[in-house]
Write a protein that binds this DNA or RNA. Structure first.
Lengths: 145, 145
DNA sequence: TTAATCTCTATTGACTCGATAGAGATTATA
DNA sequence: TATAATCTCTATCGAGTCAATAGAGATTAA
């Protein structure tokens, strides 16, 4: 399950993705449109910015905008920031790989095999789904698979 | 990420799946072979039993055995017991569905679409991988697909 | 100069996680 | 029938995480 933070982040980013090009949007506005507690959202946006998913402008007339084009921000990118690796075990994580301490042989570990297949399947989907594809589509009914 | 409980459960069940037919195995033995703290394992096995994945025999000569054939116990079954639904959001969970309180329309929610695709992909893999497929195969090369 | 913003860090309460403990119930067997 | 060997159940603990709130600091447009 995603954390609340993760859900908030997805909502906020979709709001930002729907914003007219480049225009920064204030935290307060994002909070209202995405229905996220404002102070909590501040922390989330800050983290997303540090990870390059958002850019910000400080001071008057400031606000947040996407750090790169919407089609280059995948759900996987976002979820990894808010909820950590997609993988079910560190030994199959691409972004946070870590060997299991007492694993005898990674190559033959049955658990690892299964979890690796699961990770690959999940990542394949979430890396394909981007803010561009998801944002309130200018397309017709996009009943995408 | 899986919880420690989930990892322990997988290890323990693989140990049980490798056991000669029907023979009950004592908690203490499973704990040793699976390298799991014994008292913690007790709780895990108890839960797996309540969910039908294991059967037990009490008293002397007692122990645990698989609740059904190894090929009918999938990784998904196990993980759902120890770590909850595979889905990233209740609104796309098959086993624990729950509507998002403030979701305007499930049919068009972009987030839901993405998370549903992710869930389906993950479930497809984890429901296919079973204890039979994973346990130290009596097959020849054990380099199983 | 000042008001409007984002930035950073701390704090709080509730909850979960991993683990340990121990008394209770059941059963094979001597 | 007595007993030892098992599983069963519930409570407890400390550490950590999660969701949320708070407030002082830094930056910038006007």
């Amino acid at each position: 399950m995603l954390s609340q933070k993760g859900r908030y982040a997805l909502h906020a980013l979709l709001v930002l993705a729907a914003q007219k090009n480049g225009e920064p949007m204030m935290i307060a506005d994002i909070a209202e449109k995405a229905r996220v507690p404002r102070k909590f959202l501040e922390q989330i946006l800050l983290e997303l910015r540090k990870r390059g998913i958002l850019r910000s402008q400080r001071g008057r007339q400031g606000g947040y905008m996407l750090g790169r084009s919407a089609k280059e921000i995948s759900f996987a990118d976002i979820i990894r920031v808010t909820d950590g690796p997609l993988a079910l075990s560190p030994c199959v994580s691409v972004t946070a790989y870590q060997r299991c301490e007492d694993c005898e042989d990674e190559a033959t570990c049955a658990i690892r095999k299964a979890l690796l297949a699961a990770r690959d399947a999940t990542a394949a989907v979430l890396e394909t789904q981007t803010l561009a594809g998801a944002s309130s589509t200018p397309r017709r009914t996009r009943r995408g698979a």
